[in-house]
Simulated scan of single mutants.
Amino acid sequence: MNTAGDQVGCRMRRRSVLATTGTFAGLGFAGCLGSTANSVRVLAAGSLARTFEDHVSPAFREETGIEVRGEYYGANAVMRMVEDRTKHPDVVVSADATLLRDRLYGEFTDWDVAFATNSIGIGYAEESTFGQRLEDGEPWYEPARETDEGDLAIGDPNLDPLGYRAVQAFDLAATEYGLDGFRENMMTVVYEEPDEPQLMVGVESGSRAGAIVYRNMAVDHGVPFLEFPDEYNFADPELADHYATAEFTTDEEGYTAEGRPIVYNATVTDDADEPDAGHRLIQFLVDRPDLLEEAGLTVGSNVPTPNGDVPEAVDV
């Protein structure tokens, strides 16, 4: 808990804090950054559940003594929870950098740091008929459109970017291979999983043939992963214009997401209870690319990158 003196400085909004406390380098603290917070609340994309729980959180706790209290949902759902104030996180982490900026900038934050990238493909059950056909080298879209209803899962495209990226991948693959009606066909076959962290559970147990997931999710669960080609794996920044030819509009908010390279970003909300601990966590993500890559994410030359009015307390 902050002392009375801390509350005067640290609970002020960010610009006032920066005017009175100075900066810190790396994981060091200065001024009000010496607060004694022992936890930080994180609301993050569901695809990062194991990344945080198994990799980031234990290492951050060991380094700083601060516990990460994480909750994980589809990133669309995360933004909605922040917007309607059903959740009050210190740190928000998105699997779609543009989504966070579109939805939270102005009212909840005015900055973020992009810290990792990813790709999508199919995590599959090796012993399933679907998996065996992939192992035999068949183009994935042939067994995919012949699977029984519900055997192949995607995220709910109305709740998370992984879901709408799967739909966009269907569109781009249809164009790439001349597959008339492929998106429509696939949307009648796939199961839309509303709880993103659960996408791989059925595949891991063998009760589901496969799921369209991020690479790190397959790594987390130790299942085979067939990465989509660059033309629709959303991993190549040089293909941004190509990805943007596919889009998806969500049902409830009517938010239209163009296809775009996968970039994870994080911010500390303006009304965070523990902004200093939040800044420290984001600095930790920036400083530990090895930890993120161990978890199956990619930290290439285009990250980390700051966007907006990044506080001096985060050194990128």
Rank of each mutant, 00 (worst) to 15 (best):
R280L: 14
R183M: 01
G206K: 02
D273C: 01
T256Y: 05
E274W: 01
E193C: 03
R133G: 13
R101G: 07
A209T: 00
V299C: 10
V263F: 02
R101S: 12
V17I: 15
G278T: 10
D148C: 04
E294K: 00
D271Y: 05
D287H: 04
L199A: 03
A295F: 09
G210E: 02
P143L: 10
T188E: 15
G278Y: 09
H221I: 01
G22D: 05
M187P: 09
E67M: 09
H242Q: 12
T147W: 07
T305G: 11
L18M: 11
S301L: 10
T249L: 04
V17G: 12
D230G: 08
G31C: 10
E312Y: 11
E204A: 13
E196K: 04
L292M: 03
A153W: 10
T36A: 13
D156C: 11
Q7C: 05
R85F: 06
Q198V: 04
T175F: 11
S128C: 12
I154K: 05
T21L: 05
H279W: 08
R50Q: 04
S128Y: 07
A125W: 15
L33S: 08
T109P: 02
D220M: 00
E253S: 15
G34K: 12
I120L: 05
L100G: 06
D90M: 02
L99H: 14
P311G: 03
G22T: 00
F108E: 10
E62F: 06
R14L: 03
L297Y: 06
G22C: 02
V268S: 03
L33Q: 13
S47T: 14
Y177A: 06
D156Q: 03
N2H: 07
A244F: 14
A59H: 05
E126C: 02
F29P: 01
V219H: 14
A173T: 12
V190G: 13
D273I: 06
A244Q: 04
P194E: 07
G163P: 08
S94A: 01
A75G: 12
F182N: 06
E146A: 15
L99F: 14
V8S: 11
V190C: 12
D276G: 11
T256Q: 07
F24V: 02
E126Q: 15
D236C: 01
V201H: 11
R69I: 09
R15L: 14
A116K: 04
D102F: 10
G155Y: 08
G222T: 08
V223E: 08
E138Y: 10
V310K: 01
A97G: 05
